[in-house]
Design a protein around this nucleic acid. Structure first.
Lengths: 112, 112
DNA sequence: GTTCCATGATCTGTTTATGGATCAAATCCT
DNA sequence: AGGATTTGATCCATAAACAGATCATGGAAC
């Protein structure tokens, strides 16, 4: 009896998390780093490091991104400057949008 | 007295998490979705949805990636097929690497 | 083959995230 | 401006993540 998933993640996001984890593992091995070594560098436990590499969706996004950065994986295909630029652009776009959303009426069709 | 961060995240990973969160927010508003609506679709609470958009590194990577996917943000700039391809390529590369890492000797230089 | 060590898995206790409710403030629409 | 509602923030109870230790297995180097 396999444990049912607590949350029904979509295939896309599940695969994305796993890809990131396995990419970290690959980069770690190529750099000849031990799981324990990488965990220490990232400031987390070996157990968590293993879960990250296995693609556990329950892992905090902070620790995952941190280890990815340490082994040299670029997020959003951008370096530090690139991230700042994207952030600025995104924030600029946000100022042009309404702050609160008024959901479109479901268009009730109740006269028949 | 401000609360010291539990974990010292690098600027890069911190900014990456924030960028993802604010990108989700932007996409959500552009799609005219309410925080509550998006939370429901993703199967999580409104409170967590807010933290995700604020770039809280403590949020699970699963919920974050899931909401990103729902609002149409592509992870690793790849669609479903792209993710599968990248996963396959990565796994192939992994088979060529040693499974266990033997850390390089510190190269002790003790004869002088 | 033998030895050493990395890895995988499991357990326990503590910390933290998360859900759900609530309230005030901000904002959108008429 | 007025009314409705989204949003932001906070609180509490519970579930889950995380750290740390331990044991068994398997791979790497010799």
């Amino acid at each position: 009896m396999t444990k049912p998933a607590l949350r029904p993640y979509s295939r896309y996001s599940r695969e994305a998390v796993q890809l990131l984890g396995r990419s970290i593992r690959r980069a770690r091995i190529e750099k000849k780093l031990t799981v324990a070594e990488l965990a220490t560098r990232a400031g987390l436990s070996r157990g968590l490091m293993q879960r990250i590499e296995q693609g556990d969706p329950g892992c905090g996004i902070g620790p995952v991104f941190e280890t990815a950065a340490i082994v040299g994986i670029r997020l959003f295909e951008a370096d530090q400057a690139g991230l700042s630029a994207m952030t600025a652009a995104n924030d600029a776009a946000l100022t042009l949008l309404p702050r609160a959303v008024r959901p479109a009426r479901p268009e009730i069709d109740d006269d028949f």
